[in-house]
């Protein structure tokens, strides 16, 4: 079982590169059992969504379109 600290690194890495099969396996196993890391992963996704939104609306960041 990998640690939460290690999971935070893997979740971040997954936004930048494909994870290996082994990494995906351990990550999934951990996320299945750990609510906090599940929240962490959701937060990373939320931040990426916010950055994408920011990058696509120059005149009006609170884009309601």
């Amino acid at each position: 079982m990998i640690s939460c600290k290690e999971v935070s690194r893997l979740v971040s890495a997954s936004l930048d590169r494909p994870l290996t099969l082994r990494e995906r396996f351990w990550l999934r196993l951990h996320l299945w059992r750990c609510r906090s890391c599940g929240n962490f992963a959701e937060q990373m996704n939320a931040m990426r969504a916010a950055m994408r939104r920011l990058a696509r609306s120059p005149d009006d960041p609170p884009d309601r379109g």
Partner: peptide
């Protein structure tokens, strides 16, 4: 190397609510 109780990441809910 596991989260300390006061640092556990929280549920942010539906991010879309915030983005709006």
């Amino acid at each position: 190397a596991h989260w300390s109780p006061q640092s556990r990441p929280r549920d942010w809910g539906d991010p879309e609510d915030s983005l709006q």
